[in-house]
Computed example of a mutant assay.
Amino acid sequence: MTLVKFNPEKKNNALLPGFNDIFESVLGDTFFTERRMNSVPAVNISESSEAYQIELAAPGLKKEDFKVSIERDMLTISTQHQEQTAEGKTYNRKEFSFSAFTRAFTLPESADTEKIRASYNQGILKLELPKKEEAKAVSRQIEIQ
């Protein structure tokens, strides 16, 4: 009897040559990769004593591509940007992906919706939502007697 050592790092094992290549091709290059790439942009949300900050990663767009709106206590960020197709170009692989998206956030009651500021710089959309005066953290020194 001969023992054959199994090596999971090896792409093509002796039993099923090409089997791993097929799965790598299917899982790496088609439907699943497109689904991962066409997801909504990543968001960072932070809070300070004065305001809430939202940062949305959306490289390749212009500030004119965004629509930021508030309805009741819902902040909505969306874009309808569609990618431009280049005439006469044939791609062997195309990974750049720009698709329309919408992100919605429920705002806390402490956010002052009248003073929201937005800016877009180097692929990051930043929104600052100041807190209402009554919601800001008040700190004071207490004298010990």
Score class of each variant (00 low, 15 high):
55 E>M: 10
57 A>S: 10
57 A>W: 11
57 A>H: 14
58 A>Q: 01
58 A>M: 04
58 A>N: 01
58 A>C: 08
58 A>G: 01
59 P>D: 04
60 G>R: 08
60 G>W: 04
61 L>C: 05
61 L>R: 02
62 K>I: 05
62 K>A: 10
62 K>F: 06
64 E>V: 14
65 D>Q: 00
65 D>E: 00
66 F>N: 06
66 F>Q: 14
67 K>A: 15
67 K>P: 09
67 K>Y: 10
69 S>F: 06
70 I>S: 11
71 E>A: 08
72 R>I: 05
72 R>C: 05
72 R>Q: 10
73 D>K: 12
73 D>R: 06
74 M>F: 05
74 M>D: 09
74 M>T: 15
75 L>Q: 13
75 L>K: 13
76 T>C: 07
76 T>I: 14
76 T>A: 13
77 I>K: 09
77 I>N: 07
78 S>M: 10
80 Q>H: 08
80 Q>T: 07
83 E>H: 06
83 E>Q: 15
83 E>P: 12
84 Q>A: 13
84 Q>V: 13
85 T>Y: 01
85 T>N: 06
86 A>F: 03
87 E>P: 03
87 E>Q: 10
87 E>N: 11
87 E>Y: 07
89 K>R: 15
89 K>G: 06
89 K>C: 07
91 Y>C: 02
91 Y>S: 11
92 N>L: 12
92 N>S: 09
93 R>C: 04
94 K>C: 13
94 K>R: 13
94 K>Y: 10
96 F>L: 12
96 F>Y: 10
96 F>M: 05
96 F>I: 13
97 S>A: 12
98 F>R: 11
100 A>V: 05
102 T>N: 00
103 R>K: 15
104 A>Y: 00
104 A>N: 03
106 T>V: 14
107 L>K: 12
109 E>S: 04
110 S>V: 01
110 S>Y: 06
110 S>P: 00
110 S>K: 05
111 A>Y: 04
111 A>M: 07
111 A>S: 07
